[in-house]
């Protein structure tokens, strides 16, 4: 384990660009351009009535993790959230799908 760890740290040292340090007061800061890759999520909402509607409408703007880790919320609270997504954050959700989404979310069992 410790050998792996060491090899791993060496690899890290070799691959990580040297971070730009805030220079001493006499010298201006030197900036290094950044290019990164952000991880995506392939997590989908668990099966159940309306799951497909939720997957089709919600995952374009945000991954599922935070939704699935909400505490148990009432139908009124989920309605408020879904309405905010549609009316304030402009999620392109068919009005006909709103009720199905709310019903699905209100029936979610909080995961462990």
């Amino acid at each position: 384990m410790s050998m792996h760890r060491t090899a791993f740290l060496l690899a890290a040292l070799a691959l990580t660009p040297i971070p730009a340090l805030a220079a001493p007061t006499s010298e201006p800061m030197h900036f290094t351009s950044q290019q990164v890759e952000l991880p995506g999520s392939d997590r989908v909402f668990p099966d159940g009535p309306g799951a497909e509607v939720v997957n089709n409408n919600c995952l374009a703007c945000h991954s599922a993790g935070m939704v699935l880790t909400q505490p148990r919320l009432s139908k009124a609270q989920w309605t408020e959230t879904v309405n905010k997504m549609v009316h304030v954050y402009k999620a392109p959700v068919d009005q006909a799908d709103v009720q199905a989404i709310v019903d699905y979310l209100a029936a979610l069992k909080p995961q462990p």
Binding site: L38, G40, Q111, P112
Partner: peptide
Amino acid sequence: GGPDTRDLTTAFPGKGSMILQRTQPPL
């Protein structure tokens, strides 16, 4: 009352071990 379990992740650029609250947009 939970849910109280979260993954730890090291997948984000410039970040070591972090508690994953949401992948996208990142929390």
